[in-house]
């Protein structure tokens, strides 16, 4: 039996480098998903607070589906379904083409739609917290609709939505662990491979859990820094 420290060493004997690479993949995936999820979530929230009924309906269907499905199932639907679907669509134009929707992109799409459906709810309640007078004030000083949104509503919206979004970020970070099931070499998959090969399951899954915990702590520190900064911006006004 090798000692614990050999197993956790850096290099070809140990597994620390592999797990560190996994941590990098996890962080990259979460960071790549965030802007996608935020953008879609914002657009869905716009649709859901629109005065147009059909837009609200379309937005509601979106959130109902992606908040109702288990994240793991969404991931499999994207990983197996989207690949076949896109492939067939592209083959219509170019029978030779192969489109690779790899597990990273699948993970990004699946986590992105799940994130966006929750984010849309956060944005929506933030929209509702902004009094109608703010819009009217914007129009009154002669701003266009887009300008009112950008200059008056959005800064307040971000401040109100920030705690909710921070929470979603922490959930996203944990949800990335699901991509290990579609073969992306994230923290948990690397830990799983190490556990299976070395038979030290408790050690490696424990290390994986601690890395997630560390990521959560770092995120919390980052988030409170952002919150302080946004608060300061507000105080300057």
């Amino acid at each position: 039996m090798q000692s614990v420290w050999t197993l956790l060493s850096w290099g070809s004997e140990g597994w620390l480098d592999d797990i560190a690479y996994g941590a990098l993949v996890t962080v990259c995936l979460a960071l790549a998903t965030l802007p996608v999820g935020l953008l879609i979530g914002f657009l869905i929230a716009l649709a859901k607070q629109s005065s147009e009924r059909s837009l609200r309906l379309a937005g509601d269907i979106y959130t109902t589906i992606f908040r109702g499905l288990p994240e793991l199932l969404t991931l499999f639907l994207v990983f197996f379904g989207a690949q076949i679907g896109i492939q067939q669509a592209v083959r219509l134009f170019n029978p030779e083409a192969t489109v690779e929707v790899n597990s990273f992109v699948s993970g990004m799409i699946a986590l992105g739609v799940v994130f966006s459906s929750y984010a849309s709810e956060v944005f929506l309640s933030a929209f509702r917290a902004i009094p109608q007078g703010q819009y009217e004030g914007g129009f009154a000083v002669g701003l266009s609709k887009a300008q009112t949104m950008r200059l008056v509503v959005l800064p307040q919206l971000i401040r109100i939505a920030l705690p909710g979004l921070a929470n979603l970020w922490l959930i996203l970070l944990k949800d990335t662990s699901l991509v290990s099931a579609i073969g992306l070499t994230d923290i948990l998959r690397q830990a799983g491979v190490a556990a299976r090969v070395t038979k030290h399951a408790f050690l490696f899954f424990g290390v994986a859990a601690l890395i997630y915990l560390a990521l959560a702590i770092v995120s919390s520190i980052g988030i409170s820094a952002i919150e302080r900064w946004v608060g300061k911006q507000e105080a300057h006004r």
């Binding site: 990983f79 197996f80 690949q83 076949i84 492939q87 192969t98 489109v99 690779e100 929707v101 790899n102 099931a181 579609i182 073969g183």
Partner: peptide, 16 residues
């Protein structure tokens, strides 16, 4: 390319 066993045939069909 390493691929989990229970998804290996779908992955072949999907062109991975």
């Amino acid at each position: 390319i390493a691929q989990d066993w229970d998804g290996i045939i779908p992955a072949l069909q999907a062109g991975k």
